[in-house]
């Protein structure tokens, strides 16, 4: 069970109707969510290819800075 804000649901219903390509708003919401998830997964894969998530060099820099800001001993 997912709760959607009333104002967003109204907009989705309107858009689903206007497009004429969907049986109902449920189908339209599923379509949108699939697009979003596919995009996010694609972005995640591309990011992984680009560079390691946490580099040792950045980690050392941030550690020093967090110490001087009083976050780390």
């Amino acid at each position: 069970m997912v709760t959607i804000k009333k104002e967003i649901l109204k907009k989705l219903e309107k858009r689903a109707k206007e497009s004429g390509s969907f049986k109902n708003v449920d189908e339209y919401i599923n379509y949108i969510l699939k697009q979003v998830v596919d995009k996010l997964e694609k972005e995640k894969k591309e990011k992984k290819k680009q560079k390691p998530a946490y580099s040792k060099k950045d980690e050392e820099k941030v550690k020093q800075r967090l110490r001087s800001l009083g976050y780390l001993d």
């Binding site: 946490y54 580099s55 950045d58 980690e59 941030v62 800075r65 800001l69």
Partner: peptide
């Protein structure tokens, strides 16, 4: 940003 981290 400092790589994946954040700095003030």
């Amino acid at each position: 940003a400092l790589g994946m981290f954040g700095d003030h």
